[in-house]
């Protein structure tokens, strides 16, 4: 299993949906349902984090002295999309 950091957003969401379905069903013991709930809470936090960690950057790839560099850019003549 990949580390939490590597878990993709949709994978986390899929796991969360599975946990919610299990919690809504009748098959779990009390202890299991609490374990699942805690796992679900972790996934919710992970997903929220993912929604927040993007920075809204617009970058361009430029070739400088043979190396590829990522440089932040703005779109000229309009809204400032860069910051």
């Amino acid at each position: 299993m990949p580390a939490r950091e590597e878990l993709k957003f949709e994978e986390a969401l899929q796991k969360l949906e599975g946990i919610v379905r299990a919690l809504e069903g009748e098959g779990l013991t009390l202890e299991e349902s609490l374990d699942r709930y805690q796992e679900g809470i972790k996934l919710v936090r992970l997903c929220r984090q993912r929604l927040q960690e993007v920075e809204g950057k617009l970058q361009a790839l430029l070739i400088q002295e043979g190396d590829v560099v990522e440089k932040e850019i703005n779109l000229a003549g309009g809204e400032n999309y860069g910051a």
């Binding site: 949906e17 919610v20 809504e24 779990l28 997903c47 929604l51």
Partner: peptide, 24 residues
Amino acid sequence: VRAELEERLALLAARARRGVEHRL
């Protein structure tokens, strides 16, 4: 759409809470 994803998450979290409350 960010707002849609957030809504979906909030809904799942609420369902999880209701599920565990019901079990208790």
